[in-house]
């Protein structure tokens, strides 16, 4: 099953890339500011959240570099929200590619998440800008951890998208449900607030959520140069891998009838 996908990947990587680039282009095609919106949108959201919550959490200086923590966490979260939502809808929104031609369906799903990845990567410039503004240089290890987190997050996103995209074809409610869940996740993950704000005994459960784990330990690493234990990384990695494998298995079992029920 994985072997088949890897041989298909060689054949279809151009297609994935082309679809992603096209999505990216189209998104800002007719807007006056164009690609700048990719940077401006999260920035504006950040400014509002920062304005409200920095006075709440950081007015007494209890949290160092709250703005830096918020912008990185927010970018990661937006990446997650956008890519999963795009992945979920991918087969339906590109139904022509499903019903009028044969391309492996996973290419369509993956391509739709690449678009969000591109936006996220371009937003790294904004994050870097903020760090420069605050004259803050994260440690080398923390940057490695950051890259590791982004990679694992993307693996998880692909696994999730593979799982739900064929399902969404049959159950259109999923998009509504997922919208609610993402909104809930925004508050269930320590984006706006530090994890320490929550009772200690909840931490282990909250950190079982890979997204919360990424956001929390990314902040810790970048700002405080503090890292999770190895076993914690191990559990986190296993959860991501399980999500990915589940995604592939589910995809394989569901994808057969996709064209028929779209």
């Amino acid at each position: 099953m994985f072997g088949e996908i890897s041989t298909q990947y060689k054949k279809y990587k151009n297609l994935i890339w082309m679809l992603a680039i096209t999505d990216f282009k189209l998104r800002y095609q007719n807007s006056f500011l164009g690609y700048i919106w990719a940077l401006l949108q999260p920035l504006l959201l950040f400014m509002i959240l920062n304005f409200v919550f920095s006075s709440l959490f950081a007015s007494d200086g209890a949290i160092e570099y709250y703005a830096l923590q918020l912008i990185t966490s927010l970018m990661i979260f937006l990446f997650f929200a956008e890519s999963t939502s795009a992945g979920l809808r991918s087969l339906v929104s590109k139904s022509q590619l499903v019903t009028k031609i044969y391309v492996p369906r996973w290419t369509i799903i993956v391509a739709s998440t690449v678009n969000a990845l591109l936006i996220f990567l371009s937003n790294l410039i904004v994050i870097a800008g903020f760090f420069a503004w605050y004259r803050f240089l994260p440690s080398f290890q923390s940057m490695v951890v950051f890259i590791f987190f982004v990679f694992m997050l993307y693996v998880g996103i692909i696994g999730f998208s593979l799982m739900v995209a064929p399902l969404f074809v049959r159950f259109r409610d999923l998009s509504m449900i997922w919208e609610v869940i993402t909104r809930a996740l925004m508050y269930l993950c320590p984006i706006l607030y530090p994890l320490s704000l929550l009772p200690e005994q909840w931490h282990q459960y909250i950190l079982l959520n890979p997204l919360a784990f990424i956001i929390h330990f990314n902040k810790e690493a970048l700002i405080n140069n503090h890292f999770a234990d190895l076993w914690q990384y191990a559990i986190f990695t296993i959860i991501i891998i399980i999500i990915f494998i589940l995604g592939v298995v589910f995809y394989n079992s569901q994808v057969k009838g996709v064209a028929e029920s779209i």
Binding site: L19, T22, Q96, L97, K100, I101, Y102, V103
Partner: peptide, 8 residues
């Protein structure tokens, strides 16, 4: 593999 013109 295509059934129509101008897919996409």
């Amino acid at each position: 593999p295509f059934l129509e013109l101008g897919i996409g």
